[in-house]
Structures are given as C-alpha cells and as structure tokens.
Write a protein that binds this DNA or RNA. Structure first.
Length: 1116
RNA sequence: GCGCGGGUGGCUUAGUCGGUUAGAGCACCCGGCUGAUAACCGGGAGGUCGCAGGUUCAAGUCCUGCCUCGCGCACCA
C-alpha cells in the first residue's frame, strides 16, 4: 500500500501567508499509522516542536513536573511506556491550558542495580574480587554501564512521543548532583537527624550490603524451611528447656533463652513413646522438658505427665549447657547461657521460650545488650560460619548448614556431648513463611548486627503525616491508606551501604568518634587544606574533584584537636539520590537558585504504585528533613502492569511486552489510547495486545475516515474555513445537534480529566467520535457534500466538520499526539500542540497559579460551540425511533428497501425538523404525527415502588401485582385520579404509579421511552405495511440499484465513471418510468436498457431474487 | 496474621441513593444495511453478579463470615 500524507509543504517563512495557504485542507489519503507517526516525528524534530510548545507558553503560570529518574541499565518495556504516557498526558494537557510546563529528564545512575549488573558481566561476584580488580576500575565500569540502554530508552521515549528534555537531564552521578546531595546530608547532620548506629539489619552476604525497610519490602518471598525444637539442658537439673527456631544457623550463636515472666510454664515427664514419629529428633521415656503450658499440644508428640506449673520468672537466672561450647567465648559475661526475661515473649508459636542469638535478631540484640550477653559473631560478612564455631560448620555458608546442624543436635548426647541420650533435637518441622530476600539477587537475607548510618525519620513523623495530608493523591486511598500507614509506622532510615558505586557519605571520623560532615566541594577543599597545614599528607583536591570512591576516600581530614579523620567507608542508599531530585537537579543551593525557589514543591509527579515506599517516600523524607516542606502537591500513583494472563510483568518471568511490537503495528497513538482507556490509571492493567488492535480499528480508523471524508471534499471544493462563514444558529438542526454534543462531550471530558478519570474521559470521547460523529452525523451528511454546486447547507456541513475535527484533535492531543496533529495541521495550518485547550487557557490568566485561577475568566477563554440540551434529547429519540423502525420491519417480515407509504409518530415531543431524516432512515414516504394517542396506543400502569413501599410495607408486591396486571388500566387510572382507588386497604394515589403508554396490539408498531421519571415520555412508531404498485416499483428499483452499485464497487470503478446497463426482470412487479430513471441516475448509467419479461438474459448476467422476483443485469 | 483493591457471559468491562428485565465492546451464530471504514444496524446464544448467611417489601449494590486473586504491611523466636 502506498501512502501519501501531506503535512506542511515546503518551508514556512511567513506564518500568515503559510496559514492562508494551509488552511485549505489537502486530501487525506489512505492511512498508514506507523508511517504517519514516523514521518511526523521527523517533522517535530526539525521544528523543535517540543521546545516550541513550551516556548510559546513562556509567560504562562508555571506547572512544575518532576520526572522520576529511571535507570538506563535495563531495557525499557511496555510498563515503562504506561508510566510515561500518563506523565506526558498531564504535561501536554496543562501546556495546552497555557501553563509553562518544563520537563527535565533524569537518570538514576547509582546503586546496587548498577553494581550487580557490572559484577555479573565481569564475574566479580564478591567484594574481595572487586577490591582486587580495583575500586577505581570497578566504578569506572559502573559509570559506563549505566548508559548501556540509554539509546534504547531514548528511542522508546521519542517514538512514543513522551516529550521530555533528554538533552539536559539531571544525572545522579554528576558532581553537581552529588554535591547537592552532600549539602542535603550536611543539613540533616547539622540538625542532628543523622546518626551512626549499631543495629541488626537485613543483610545480603552476596552483595555485602544491608538494606533499609523499603528495600527489604521489595523482596519478601514465601519459602519452606526446616524449623527445629531444641532441648537446652539445664546445668543443675536433669531437665531441658524447649525452644524453637526457624533459623537453625543462628543456634551456634545462642547465648540466652528468653521467657515471659508472666507466662505459665510446665515441667513434664515423657511417659510413652510417640507414635508415627517422622523426621529426626525425639525423647526417651522419663525425660523431662520444660515449655509454655499453652503450647504443649502444639509441640509435644509424646504422651507426658505434668510434674508442675510455674510462672516464667521462676526460670530466670537458671543456667544451661551451650549447644556449641566452642562457638562463642564467655568473656566477661555473667549472664551468658542463662534464662532471661523479656515481656515481648508470646505463646502464639514456638514453645514460649525464645532462643536468643545476640547478633542475628533485633530483639535478641537489644535483649543481649541490656542483659550483658557476649556480643560475638559466629558468622562472617560473607555469610559463612567463622573458624572455631564447629569443625563441621567452619567456613560454610550458613543457609547450607541446616541439615548438618540438625544432625549434630540429634546425635546421642547432642552437639555439646553433655545432652540427654536422645540428643538435643526434640523435633523438626517444615515451616512455611514469608522471608525477606535480596531484591537484586534473590538470596535470603540474614538479620545481622552491623555499623550503619541512619536518618532519624522518627523525629519528624508528625511533619511527614502533616505534609502527606496536603498532597492530592490519585487515587486518594493510596495517600490515606497505603502511604499514610507507612508513615505512621515510620522507622529510622538506614541510608548507608557497604558498597562502592554511589554517593559517598561525606562524614569523616576520628578513631575516638569525633565527626565532621562536609557539605560542598569548597568545604572539602578547605578541610583538606587545613589537614595539610596540620601536617597530614593529602592528594590534590581540585575544583572538579570526582566525588566518588575511591577518590574521596583518599582524603584525610583533621579534627579540631589535631587527630586524623577518615571518611566513613559507606555510600548512600541510591534511593536517597533520587529523593534529592527536586533540588539536586538544579544544583541547589550552589546554582540556579531562582529556578529552584520557584519550582518547589513540585506540582505533579507520577509513577507506579510500587514507588510508594520508594521514590514517593524518599522525596518526602528528604524534603521534610532538609527543608521542612513537602516535595510534591499532586501524585498520580499508577497500577501495576500485568500481562494478558494477569501475571506481573517482570524480567524474570520473561513476559514483558516489547513496546515496539505495537509501535510498529498499530502505532503509538493506538498504544497510548488503549492504555488510558483500558481502565483507571491506578488499577492493575492487563495488557492485552488484541486491545491495541481494537483501539486502532475503532478509534483511529474511524477518526481518520471522518477526517478523510471532510478533507477530501474540502479539497475538492477549495473549502477555506477562514474565507467563509456559517452562522451556527442558522445551520441545520443536525449540525446544531452534533455541535452541542461536541460541547457536552468536551465539558465532561475536561471534568473527568480534573478528577484524574482519564479512562472515563477517553471512553466517552471515543464513543462520541464513533457513534455520534461517524455513525450518525457523517452517515446522515454524506449526500450533502456530494452536491457539486455551492450551497449554504454544504457550507454548514463543512464548517461543522471542521469545528468538530479541530476540537476533537485538541482533546485527543494530550493522550495520543500523532494523528490529531496531522489532521489539525491540514485543517488549520497549525500544529495541535500549539493550540489552546477548548475548555479554556487558565495558565495565561493574570495571577493564575498551578493551584488556582479565576474560574470565570478561564471559562471565558473556552472555544466551544453552543449547547442545546433539548436538541440533544430530541435527537436521541430520533435515533431510537430509527432503530425501532428496523425492528418493526423485521418483525413484520418487510425488507428494508421496500418503502412504506406512511409512518406515524404517536405523541411526544415536537420533532418535525427531523421528519426528513426519519423518513429516510425508516424508508417511508411520509411521516405523520398522530395526536389521537388512543388510535395506536393504550395505557399500562406500573407500580412506583419508591412511593408505594412505605405505605404498603410487606404487601407491596401484592399491591404492585394488582396494579401491573389490571384488566382495565384506564378504569383503574380514573379511580386513582378520582381518589377512590383502594387496593388491599391501601389508598393509591397518582404518585404511586407510573403511567406508561404502549402500542396497541395488531399494528406494526413499537414503543420507546425517553427520559426518566416524571419527564419520561412514551413514543410509539407505527408503520403502514400496505403495498401499492408505486411502492413495489420503488422498492424494486432500490434493490436493483444497490446490486448495481455493489457491482460497480466490485469492478473498482471510480465514482465518476459511467456504465452501460442492461436489466432483465421476471415475475417482478411493474417498474415505473420514474424509478427506472432513478436507477439510471444513481448508477451513472450512460446507456440503459430495461428488457421486457420475455427476453432471455445472457448467461454471464448477474442474477438475484427479491421477494420472488428474478432479476438479471449486466454492467459494462 | 493485619490493611487496601479486585472477583459481573469465553475475554475486556459499566452498573448512580438498594427499586423489581444487570448494560456495553470483542469473539461466535442468524438476518439486515452499505459507493461507509478492519465500518454500521437488528436479532440470537451465552450470567448461580466468588460462596454462605443476614437486613429489607426489594440486594450486583448495605451488613457479617468465608473462599480466591493482586498489592502493601507485619513478621518476630
């Protein structure tokens, strides 16, 4: 298929001249959406259309958008297109409203994802390997790696027409960006919100890094693991305390047992061997164990007798035998391997006794510190047991030792050689639970005590909540619910990472704990100078010193009392970087001061709902701690993108849809429109490829054909919308109707936009284009443009089409910006992306801000045609009657092309101006209005439950039945009106019933209802089914014509071509001269012969039958 | 376990303050219409509105419990 799409012709020098030239539409041509879009992209690029769209709104009120930075080291998928479509949509919409909407691009370039990628590629899977390779080399590789897919991102972004400035993006690895982050950290440091602590954190030994809660939340997985019940043998009694753990690897580190002081425990003796024992472990008859009373049934598998009961506090202080005597040195501790009390011990699971390994659990650690337990690691940073733990465990990855530990415990006398003969293991049990895993490597995380830096978010909790209240969330329940809940449970933010590629923490520290936080390059330089002056050697610190490891590690500063200070060897959580975007993108406060001041907090951000704990949070966390302000005013939180089966799209599942599959088939317009109409933005979107195809076929093909219809005739007639006028008030009612529908649709569209209901807006607009414009207005108007001569009616139609199309283009433009631009350009000579929003341009008003403007003044800038609600109602009725007419014919078995002499409209609204349309639609000779309702209609009464129910109560159904099935509704109505109607003791008033009129039986008729409630009107359509020779002749002529036209189309004749026609008829009604002449005109027959019934048609003639008549014809 | 959001013909979905016949689109079948486009119109088949109770004259809609899917939180021994 060859395609020609005419856009601008030649260079446009003089805008006015060009406009005059261009305002005359060119023919539309056939549609090739992909070619249309790619051609247009080149033109946009040449014109600088994006920049221009901002430039012309330079004086508008600013609407500040902030781009959430993606990482370019992964390939973009369709789910990225969705997020970008909504970002783009709102920015384009606000731009058309006259706001200045700048869109700076951004790239997230630091952090674990980047490191992992590089580690995999270069096979540097441990920290040792990285350090052996050289941190500088490694970081250089990271620096390059982040751009791996930049071109793929750029191409996707451009192809989908996401207008964002990728030529001047902010990049989190750049010095200026990092310097702003440093400044922010120093603000926190100075406010005392930054602290160094020792905490048990989820730790991933593979990546060598610990995580903050929002990262851990990314990686919960359900796993089944062995859990064990272990007997801790008391030192001074032949009895054991039972404790339970799901992490057997922490048992060598056991140094205490915690019991609830108020919990009731029992001492029991095994009396009988357990039946059906499975797995390892056990107990001998006579053995004595201690556990919480509530959990006996859960835990014990032997028959036992209770020896005594006592509260937990009676156990406190008792000492027991260590499971792995070599693993942890006692040191100074007097409390090691004794029973401790803790009020958080419950009896919901386990044994009511909590095994405590100081370094591997938050509660354990706190308890251990309070009770003076020895704080020794049994596990190294690499996740393997340290030497000296146990000969069979040393050096092995802890998660692989479960079975070994179980075996050691279950051997006679147990792992410590001093347990009961039955061993130290009582039972093992598979345990199913959600356990945190590394969101990058999928390995289970270990809770692990380590040094870390924290932001004291708990100190600003109230402010966080307060600021969140001020944010306009879409949907609102994300803000109130999910995000609010998160904030109410806010924890201090663990922001340090034991990694290499990231923003280094700018804190230097002496061995005795004095600290200094550096907030800028300049400050670093002066501190370095100070240190050099104090005699500490340092490398050069130039203005462009690279603010990364290992460069910054090389500087040694000096404390006030002259001691050397070394940088804390951490980098920041990369989420901190993106949380700094509102100011770091401008290099605030070192640069661009005004830009920042006028653009903070930002007006609009939009990301997937998965960013709730990510970017949505870190933005607010940083802005609150640094500026004591919120970071954004509006946040659109998008639902997850699922595949057609409803599964989450993810790289690991391999179900990611490649956006190019659709860009190259249906185009970006259809892809974007589909995504927006498929459901509410915040609902999960099942991405269905077939849906994109449907959108293309329905929405865009239809729009194009409406446009084509207009443009082709407009070009033929040299139509110039500016050179002629057509007063709307004097246009035909069909035109006034569609223009009113346009105004109504546009207003609803806009209202839905304001409420973030883009899906509703677009569904309704699509419905308007397909049903109102294409299937009714254009279909009804085709003949108006076929006329070669000029007429006011034709002109009206052309102006109407022009107005519909230009307005529709502007409404569609924010969502799907391509085709509508081609159409708008051809119709007006101007790009739609410079056009004004049809509902007004508040951004251009004096004193307007992104948040508020003079509504009245804004409304005055709208450019919509007049609305006529009544007219819309009448037309709705007309269309309904047209449909009803077809049904009447089908029921009566009368074919559509056989005219009826008369149709009656019974009662109802005045609609004489549409009688012509109706007559044509219904194929009747004339329409009459019948005032005598009773000629074709009868009354039916229906109960009005709302009114009736309160009176009738439980009798309502019986009363309603009486009304509904009344044999004499007329009489019943009379008695109701007379106030004498009583059914089952209930007095019935007129408001208790609905009076309906329905068609009388025996006519070819049907009744429709329009309006609701009191405004409801029943209108009947009646068709006269009697035949006359004239009608039969006319009907036959129409059938013949239709067959000939089909043949013409079949023969690929151009519309103007004339034909030679011969027709043979047998068993047919007489065809009158007028109707023959009509056939000749309609089919453009230059010569026509109508043979009489005796002539034999040639064998190659076309043949068909209609109502028993046989027809042959030839077309040449 | 707690919270949020879903569950409506084969698929995608609409459904207002509870009102008696649950509405569209796609796909399917039949018919019609067409110099109108992968279009349009009429009809058909296809629904235990997740399940079970409850409130009510009346429940897709309100209440309770449960099942199920997704997401989030807490996960502790």
């Amino acid at each position: 298929m060859t395609v020609e799409i005419t856009l601008f012709k030649g260079e446009v020098q003089d805008k006015k001249a060009a406009r005059w030239f261009m305002a005359r539409p060119n023919p539309a041509g056939e549609l090739d959406a992909v070619k249309l879009e790619t051609t247009l992209l080149e033109m946009w690029s040449k014109e600088g259309a994006f920049q221009q769209s901002i430039e012309t709104r330079r004086n508008g009120a600013p609407f500040i958008f902030l781009e959430g930075p993606p990482t370019a080291n992964g390939k973009p998928g369709i789910h990225h297109v969705v997020a970008r479509a909504y970002k783009d949509l709102v920015c384009r919409w606000k731009t058309m409203e006259g706001f200045k909407v700048e869109r700076k691009g951004g790239w997230d370039t630091h952090g674990l994802p980047v490191e992992i990628e590089v580690q995999k590629r270069m096979d540097l899977m441990s920290n040792e390997a990285i350090e052996a390779y050289g941190m500088d080399n490694f970081n250089q590789a990271c620096r390059e790696s982040v751009w791996t897919y930049e071109s793929a991102w750029r191409e996707m972004t451009e192809r989908m027409a996401y207008w964002v400035d990728l030529d001047n993006p902010y990049v989190t690895l750049e010095n200026s960006y990092v310097e702003s982050c440093w400044w922010a950290i120093k603000q926190m440091f100075d406010k005392g919100l930054l602290y160094r602590g020792h905490k048990v954190l989820p730790y991933c030994p593979q990546t060598g890094t610990s995580y903050s809660s929002h990262e851990v939340a990314l990686g919960y997985k359900e796993v089944e693991e062995p859990s064990v019940y272990v007997k801790f043998k008391l030192s001074d009694e032949e009895a054991s305390i039972l404790a339970w753990t799901t992490t057997p690897w922490t048992l060598p580190g056991n140094v205490g047992l915690a019991v609830g002081p108020e919990v009731t425990y029992v001492r029991v003796r095994v009396t009988e061997v357990a039946e059906n024992w499975s797995g390892e472990g056990g107990a001998s008859v006579g053995e004595i164990v201690i556990l919480a009373k509530d959990l006996m049934k859960e835990v014990l598998r032997h028959n036992v007798e209770i020896i005594d009961e006592f509260p937990g506090r009676d156990l406190v202080g008792r000492s027991y035998e260590p499971l792995f005597p070599e693993a942890v040195p006692r040191g100074e501790s007097t409390t090691a391997w004794t029973v401790l009390e803790a009020d958080w011990v419950t009896t919901t699971d386990g044994t009511g006794v909590v095994h405590t390994a100081v370094m591997y659990g938050e509660d354990d650690y706190n308890l251990g510190m309070a009770a003076g337990l020895p704080a020794y690691h049994t596990v190294g940073m690499d996740g393997a047991f340290l030497e000296g733990t146990h000969p069979l465990l040393d050096g092995r990855y802890v998660k692989e030792c479960d079975q070994t530990i179980i075996e050691l415990l279950s051997s006679p006398k147990g792992s410590n050689g001093s347990g009961p003969e039955s061993g130290l293991l009582y039972r093992e049990k598979a345990y199913l639970h959600d356990y945190p895993h590394c969101w990058r490597t999928d390995h289970p995380l270990l809770y692990y005590a380590m040094d870390s830096w924290f932001v004291r978010m708990t100190a600003v909790k109230e402010r966080l909540l307060e600021f969140n209240d001020g944010v306009e969330w879409a949907p609102d329940w994300v803000g109130e619910g999910r995000f609010g809940e998160w904030l109410r449970n806010v924890k201090d933010w663990a922001i340090s990472r034991e990694r290499y590629w990231g923003t280094p923490i700018p804190v230097w520290r002496t061995e005795d704990g004095q600290m200094k936080c550096v907030g800028s390059i300049e400050e670093l330089q002066s501190e370095v100078a100070k240190a050099v002056a104090a005699g500490i050697a340092n490398p050069e610190c130039p203005d462009d010193v690279d603010l990364h490891r290992p460069i910054v590690d090389g500087f040694t500063l000096v404390s006030d009392d002259g001691k050397p200070m070394h940088r804390e060897p951490f980098v920041m959580d990369c989420w901190f970087d993106s949380g700094c975007a509102p100011f770091a993108q401008w290099h605030h406060p070192f640069d661009g001061g005004e830009t920042f001041d006028s653009s903070f907090p930002v007006d609009y951000i939009c990301e997937g709902v998965d960013q709730t704990r990510g970017w949505f949070y870190t933005l607010l966390a940083v802005s609150t701690t640094v500026f004591d302000k919120p970071a954004y005013k509006r946040c659109l939180s998008l639902g997850l993108i699922l595949d057609a089966e409803g599964k989450k799209m993810s790289k690991s599942r391999g179900n990611i849809v490649d956006p190019w599959d659709h860009f190259n088939r249906e185009g970006a317009d259809a892809t974007r429109w589909y995504m927006v109409t498929a459901g509410a933005p915040w609902n999960p979107l099942k991405f269905d490829s077939n849906g994109v195809r449907e959108t293309y076929a329905k929405m865009f093909l239809t729009l194009w054909n409406v446009y084509k219809f207009h443009a082709d005739y407009a070009a033929l007639d040299n139509f110039d919308p500016d050179a002629s006028t057509s007063d709307v008030a004097s246009r035909p009612s069909l035109d006034r109707w569609i223009l009113s529908r346009l105004a109504t649709t546009a207003q609803n569209y806009h209202a839905d936009f304001k409420g973030w209901n883009f899906h509703k807006a677009c569904r309704d607009l699509e419905d308007f284009i397909v049903n109102d414009v294409s299937n009714w207005y254009v279909r009804r108007s085709r003949r108006r443009l076929w006329d070669d001569s000029e007429s006011s009616d034709k002109l009206a139609c052309q102006h109407t089409l022009h107005e519909i199309l230009t307005t529709v283009c502007r409404l569609v433009a924010p969502v799907s910006p391509f085709m509508v631009d081609v159409i708008h350009r051809n119709l007006t000579g101007e790009t739609v992306h410079q056009a004004a929003w049809p509902l007004g341009v508040p951004g251009t008003l004096d004193g307007a801000t992104a948040d508020a403007w003079d509504e009245q003044a804004a409304a005055a800038t709208a450019t919509l045609p007049p609305q006529d609600v009544e007219l819309e109602g009448v037309m709705e009725l007309v269309r309904e009657l047209a449909e009803v007419g077809r049904r009447i014919r089908i029921d009566a078995g009368r074919r559509q092309r056989l005219p009826c002499s008369q149709g009656w409209i019974v009662a109802g609204l005045e609609m004489s101006e549409f009688h012509d349309i109706l007559a044509e639609e219904l194929n009747v000779e004339s329409i009459a209005v019948e005032d005598d309702l009773d000629r074709f209609q009868q009354i039916a009464l229906a109960p009005n439950f709302r009114a009736l129910a309160p009176k009738a109560r439980s009798e309502v159904n019986a009363v309603a039945g009486e009304i509904k099935h009344s044999q004499d509704p007329v009489g019943l109505l009379e008695s109701i009106r007379a106030g004498t109607c009583v059914i089952m003791g209930i007095s019935i008033e007129e408001s208790d019933v609905e009076i309906k009129r329905i068609e009388r039986p025996g006519f070819a008729a049907s009744t429709v209802q329009v309006g609701q409630g009191d405004d409801a009107v029943q209108i009947s359509l009646v068709l006269d089914m009697n035949d006359t020779p004239e009608l039969l002749s006319k009907g036959l002529a129409r059938d013949v014509t239709r067959r000939i036209q089909a043949k013409r189309k079949d023969m690929d004749l151009v519309i103007e071509a004339s034909i030679d026609l011969e027709v043979w008829m047998r068993n047919a009604p007489e065809m009158f001269e007028d109707d023959r002449a009509w056939i000749v005109t309609e089919t453009r027959a230059a010569g026509a012969v109508f043979h009489d019934a005796k002539a034999n048609p040639p064998s190659d003639a076309e043949h068909f039958e209609v109502d028993g008549a046989e027809i042959w014809f030839t077309v040449k």
